[in-house]
């Protein structure tokens, strides 16, 4: 499992559903939703959020700049115990 877990936030009203991010994602996280936004576009969302590594490939190819990317290190169980102490 990847060391980092990522997450994306899509600006729903600005997304135009062009699917460029869907193709760019190396771990096939992104899909297009069934519901549409105010302009009638199917918007990008995380179909498979556990696989996201926060690589930001989707965000840099997004022509409308609607994707914001976050990532956080997954803590191994040993590290977690240490932190709790």
């Amino acid at each position: 499992m990847a060391k980092f877990k990522g997450s994306i936030v899509v600006d729903k009203e600005k997304c135009k559903g062009c699917e460029v991010c869907v193709v760019a994602c190396p771990t096939n996280v992104i899909g297009l939703s069934r519901e549409v936004n105010g302009k009638g576009f199917h918007i990008a969302f995380m179909e498979n959020p556990d696989a996201c590594t926060g690589c930001a490939n989707c965000a840099i190819v997004c022509p409308d700049g609607v994707i914001t990317v976050y990532k956080k290190e997954r803590l191994s169980s040993e590290k977690k115990i240490k932190e709790q102490k």
Partner: peptide
């Protein structure tokens, strides 16, 4: 590996990797 990270844990400003440039309106 522990996998309890929820989306709310990750989406915080200190974990930000990429956002739209402020030079864009």
């Amino acid at each position: 590996m522990n996998d309890n990270l929820s989306n709310a844990d990750i989406v915080k400003c200190e974990n930000l990797v990429y956002k739209r440039s402020p030079v864009m309106t």
